[in-house]
Nucleic acid binder design. Structure first.
Lengths: 187, 187
DNA sequence: TCTATAACTAAGCGTTTGCTTAGATTTAAC
DNA sequence: GTTAAATCTAAGCAAACGCTTAGTTATAGA
């Protein structure tokens, strides 16, 4: 009855996500997206409604890709050691060749103004809170741990993880691994 | 011989800096600057050449303002305790009423792409390196400390400080203070 | 083969961006 | 008071932004 799409939506979102990851949300223009995704602006808007839609789909994909390491964390029952492994896994996950791109979500949180784009901001907060809950769950596995301190430790770890997302653009790999080592010294 | 300026350059830069601090570099437009600074675009360009010039002057001012707490750190001789105080001082410094604005420099590092604006990026890196050196200097004051670990500890502290700049937009004051407490537990 | 419909290309919409410029206004030396 | 120079206002520049739309092309059912 009608013409077939000449592109696969999953494939072009993969490319869009990598561009957002490197560039951030605002400074990725629709012109850049159409070049990277290899499809016309019309097709972008037909498939994903608008730029925001492309980004929300990118976060979804990011979520499923990072699932491979959050699942490892979720299935671990070795307490804080599991979280430490998550930090190392994340470093590996955020690497593209020699450079580190940080976390797509953290990068964007830093860029977006809350009131200028509440939909994206809400999606990003949901993502962060989810990871923090995994930290709490794993910390509770260590039975010699002071339960009153667990919430504070989870916040401390989130702070370190957020920091790592910036640090990974400044420091080299050896330094980043040393930062992780030091972060877990007293936990 | 000629007309007098109807504004004080130091005063309008103060206002520009606060706007950049809240908003970031890219998402602060020249139209917003002229409203906040209370002067016309022509005057902005006459006094500071361009938007980049306004920002570079803003960083200079930020530097002299934050000097009040970096000086305290520089004059301290109580080792890691002095750094801890710096963290608390920074939190206070970055507060505007009930909300925390993070660090102007860190906020902008997150936003700017290295190759898109190398001049600003260079100014920002200089700023960060300077603070890290103060950390190293203070860590060396503790004579029971392992000298081989000092560089790693300085990086760890920078990571925590960078994290704090993001965290301060997400967490409340009590949580932030708890994060600082936990950061220094094993140092 | 004809036709209806979805997918394509490419031009262009209105708005905002950083920045400039023409022209009026103020000021201080003469 | 005249004049020259700096400062002001306000309009407008080209480029880039997110997004739309007119017109062409391909495809599957009749």
């Amino acid at each position: 009855m009608a013409r077939k799409k000449q592109y696969n939506e999953a494939e072009v979102i993969e490319k869009a996500m990598r561009l957002f990851w490197r560039n951030g949300y605002e400074s990725t223009s629709v012109r850049m997206l159409e070049k990277e995704m290899g499809i016309n602006q019309f097709s972008i808007y037909a498939s994903f409604k608008n730029k925001e839609g492309v980004f929300l789909e990118s976060i979804k994909l990011y979520n499923t890709q990072i699932k491979s390491i959050t699942n490892t964390l979720e299935n671990s029952n070795n307490g804080v050691e599991g979280i430490k492994n998550y930090f190392y896994d994340f470093l590996d996950f955020s690497r593209e060749g020699a450079i580190f791109k940080g976390c797509l979500v953290t990068n964007t949180v830093n860029e977006i103004k809350e009131d200028s784009n509440p939909i994206i901001m809400a999606a990003l907060k949901r993502f962060s809170l989810n990871i923090r809950e995994l930290f709490v769950r794993n910390l509770k596995q260590d039975d010699e741990r002071d339960v009153k301190e667990i919430e504070a430790q989870a916040d401390y770890l989130m702070n370190a993880l957020l920091g790592l997302s910036i640090s990974s653009k400044v420091f080299n790999e050896a330094t980043l691994k040393d930062i992780i080592r030091m972060t877990f010294l007293h936990l």
